[in-house]
């Protein structure tokens, strides 16, 4: 594959090395062609390279910052959490990650809408081929869009979760209301049954009592009558016995307090007079 030719006659303004690109010992200049913010600094935190992308994002020109201490230029970097971790990079330690959620940004860069760019930064150690010392290569990714998308996703997800929670609560409430309604309906029906039963029982007892009194009185009179055959006396006793039984039933009807039924023929239920008077 043929590599694109780079104009070797153009001065490299992006690093401390004033030689032409072809003489740049680290080949840093190729990093001007990447869409990631790149800064290289030494163990004294002096910037030796500041790429084009980072210059565009931060509005800080390489000529302003190269050779200067990055912490003096960006004082927010001068924190124990940053320096303690990055110092080890100059001893050849592992790369250091600064996530967008914990740090928001490493180099403050203002976007066109006035907000700050959200960044993910990785600082790796780069050995110098000449001295064997280690430089820190800071690679900054623009994570603003990713952060925005995730925030949108979280908002939508939370809304959906809230809706599911609300729907579940409404369903629970509805179920509870329905249960209460059924219970209330059952109580009302029961009360209505008792009311009808008591009215019916009162009317029945009242209407039966009149002819029953007449019947019992007549039996009493017949019992006092002389010259009645033994067979007739026997019939009279049976009539009297049945009449008293009717009187007993009427008395029970008058004492009905609750609605209680018992099984009758062909799955039909009838009012249990005895149970209903307890």
């Amino acid at each position: 594959m043929n590599m694109p030719e780079i104009n070797a006659e153009i001065d490299c303004n992006y690093c401390a090395n004033t030689e032409k690109f072809t003489h740049c010992p680290y080949g840093y200049r190729v990093l001007n062609y990447v869409t990631v913010g790149i800064c290289i600094f030494d163990k004294n935190y002096h910037v030796s390279f500041w790429n084009r992308c980072l210059a565009n994002w931060s509005h800080v020109e390489p000529s302003d910052i190269v050779g200067k201490n990055i912490m003096e230029y960006f004082p927010t970097l001068n924190s124990p959490g940053f320096k303690e971790r990055v110092d080890y990079v100059f001893k050849g330690g592992p790369p250091v990650i600064f996530s967008s959620q914990l740090h928001r940004n490493t180099i403050p860069c203002t976007l066109s809408d006035g907000s700050y760019m959200v960044q993910k930064t990785v600082i790796s150690s780069v050995p110098s081929p000449e001295t064997g010392e280690f430089f820190a290569l800071m690679a900054i990714e623009n994570a603003t869009e990713l952060s925005r998308k995730v925030s949108e996703y979280r908002t939508l997800r939370n809304q959906a979760m809230e809706e599911v929670k609300l729907r579940k609560k409404v369903e629970d409430d509805l179920r509870e209301s329905n249960k209460m309604l059924l219970e209330h309906q059952e109580i009302t029906m029961h009360q209505e049954r008792i009311k009808v039963l008591l009215e019916m029982a009162g009317a029945t007892a009242h209407e039966l009592n009149q002819p029953l009194m007449t019947l019992l009185g007549t039996i009493e009179l017949l019992n006092m009558t002389q010259n009645v055959s033994e067979e007739t006396v026997k019939y009279l006793k049976n009539i009297e016995k049945s009449a008293k039984r009717i009187a007993d039933i009427v008395s029970k009807i008058q004492q009905i307090k609750q609605y209680q039924t018992k099984r009758y023929l062909n799955d039909v239920s009838i009012i249990d007079f005895h149970g209903s008077t307890l």
Partner: peptide, 27 residues
């Protein structure tokens, strides 16, 4: 909120936590 998934932001944060712990051990 603990209800959230392991989305890209959380993965990035977890990566940094892991980076700190592993750098300590390897160091």
């Amino acid at each position: 909120n603990d209800d959230l998934d392991m989305d890209a932001l959380r993965a990035g944060t977890f990566c940094e936590v892991g980076n700190i712990v592993l750098n300590g051990v390897m160091g």
